[in-house]
Design a protein around this nucleic acid. Structure first.
Length: 412
RNA sequence: CAGGGUGUGGCGCAGUUGGUAGCGCGCAGCGUUCGGGACGCUGAGGUCGUGAGUUCAAGUCUCAUCACCCUGACCA
């Protein structure tokens, strides 16, 4: 990609209505544009980053046999009324609207109800189970207060997965499988070292749920953990009963701030019962479907990663999710020619800064944008038939011959 | 939703006791520069969030309202 083709400009000053470090940089570097409080446009670089995270999640879910589909954002009140979640007293984050022809509609904040209702058409027999589906879907939540840039918004991209099983035992196996999948996902997006599976409130239908929390000073949650971090729990379930269940003492736990980057829930019959999602078992008897739901806020994960790794010069993306892996700067006419050739061949990997600017500005932007590696080709490096490679994260620099460079580029 | 704060060119800000609205960055043109956010000259761009009111006169005072930010509450 050539930067000269982009309409996006980087900003020297952060807009004053952003206070989160990640939000300031995401706006300055041209990844996102703010429409309203908690409502953001994803610009080309931002969208590419978001898609990279999305694709990692997709790959890992598909690997274990999950089915991707897409449901609607517009919600029929019917199924929500059956679970009593249409009522704003029970769900105070609804965006509701009306049909011109009459009748109410909601903008989906989550999809348990429509997903359960939909599956009534496909699950009839024990032979139809187990089943699951997931989607990447824009969710709408009328939060009283949006904050922290793209980490807590009113419109956001979420991966939601729903599972349907004959009984708890079968469900538990899937639940544990997804636990492992999630760990792999967080590891691949670069959060593996600082993300923990925690015990959290399970609501009315199960004792616990699990959250995945990334240690982050500006996180909204407080988590407690023991010495080897084999036990981690959310502050909301820090009580005597839970401590007894987990076999730890309060004094053995330390606390830290963290941001929730995912959750997994055993739903049991909470939705299948009111919506009557059932199957006929081997004995010809009607049984309720045992359900689970598993969410990852994709755009929030992007915000958490931005917040986690940004330094005083700007964003620092882990390699797997960066919009481009190399930021290429050419100095001098011969170098420019060489750079154009490289960009043409590896346009998915290389962001070529061919804007008519001085090198210093380009270097600063490469750092602001957080591209993992900066490549500089100049008349000087060309004398040695080489290019200079600088790692964004460490600042480490080395000279590569052009042959070595091409070898690296072809391998990615 | 409670408490607090902020609204002035695209962005960041200044604006005194009420008296013709400024600066930096950015933008446009010309020239010199070109490995760490260059420089000179010229120029464009603002009903001061919105609406009422006080006054000869309001960016400035009063009231209302909207938006945005922070803390809290809320948060499958």
């Amino acid at each position: 990609m050539k930067l000269s083709q982009s309409f996006v400009k980087t900003l020297r000053d952060a807009p004053k209505d952003e206070t989160a470090k990640s939000a300031k940089y995401l706006v300055r570097a041209g990844y996102v544009h703010k429409e309203l409080a908690g409502v953001y446009d994803f610009l080309p670089l931002g969208l590419k980053t978001l898609r990279n995270i999305e694709n990692i999640i997709r790959e890992e879910l598909n690997r274990v046999g999950c089915n991707e589909l897409q449901m609607t954002a517009l919600q029929n009140p019917d199924s929500w009324q059956k679970t009593e979640r249409w009522n704003s007293d029970r769900m105070d984050i609804w965006f509701k609207t009306e049909l011109s022809a009459g009748g109410e509609l909601g903008l989906g904040p989550t999809h348990e109800e429509p997903g359960t209702a939909m599956m009534k058409d496909y699950i009839k027999s024990y032979k139809d189970l187990p089943a699951n589906f997931y989607q990447f879907q824009t969710k709408f939540r009328n939060e009283l207060r949006a904050k922290s840039g793209i980490m807590r918004t009113r419109e956001f991209l979420m991966k939601d997965l729903y599972s349907f099983n004959t009984n708890k035992e079968e469900h538990d196996k899937f639940y544990h499988l997804i636990e492992e999948v999630y760990k792999k996902i967080y590891s691949r997006v670069g959060l593996g070292d600082c993300t923990y599976q925690t015990f959290a409130s399970g609501g009315a239908f199960s004792k616990y749920s699990h959250e995945f929390q990334t240690v982050l000073p500006v996180g909204e949650d407080t988590i407690y953990y023991n010495a080897d971090k084999s036990i981690v729990l959310n502050e909301e379930v820090l009580n005597d009963e839970v401590l007894a269940d987990l076999g730890v003492k309060r004094e053995e736990l330390e606390s830290t701030k963290a941001a929730e980057v995912g959750n997994i829930f055993s739903l049991g019959y909470k939705f299948s019962k009111p919506l009557d999602l059932s199957y006929t078992d081997q004995d010809g008897k009607k049984q309720l479907v045992y359900m689970g739901s598993y969410g990852i806020g994709v755009s929030r994960v992007m915000g958490v990663i931005a917040e986690k790794f940004a330094d005083d010069k700007g964003l620092v993306w882990p390699e797997e999710i960066a919009p481009y892996r190399y930021y290429l700067v050419a100095i001098g006419e011969n170098a420019e020619k060489k750079a154009e050739e490289l960009e043409k061949q590896y346009s998915e990997l290389i962001l070529l800064d061919n804007r008519n600017m001085r090198p210093g500005e380009k270097f600063a932007d490469s750092e602001l944008m957080g591209i993992p590696y900066r490549l500089v080709i100049s008349d000087k490096t060309l004398e040695k038939n080489s290019a200079e490679l600088t790692a964004r994260k460490t600042g480490e620099q080395k000279l590569l011959t052009l042959d070595e460079l091409v070898a690296i580029l072809s391998k990615v």
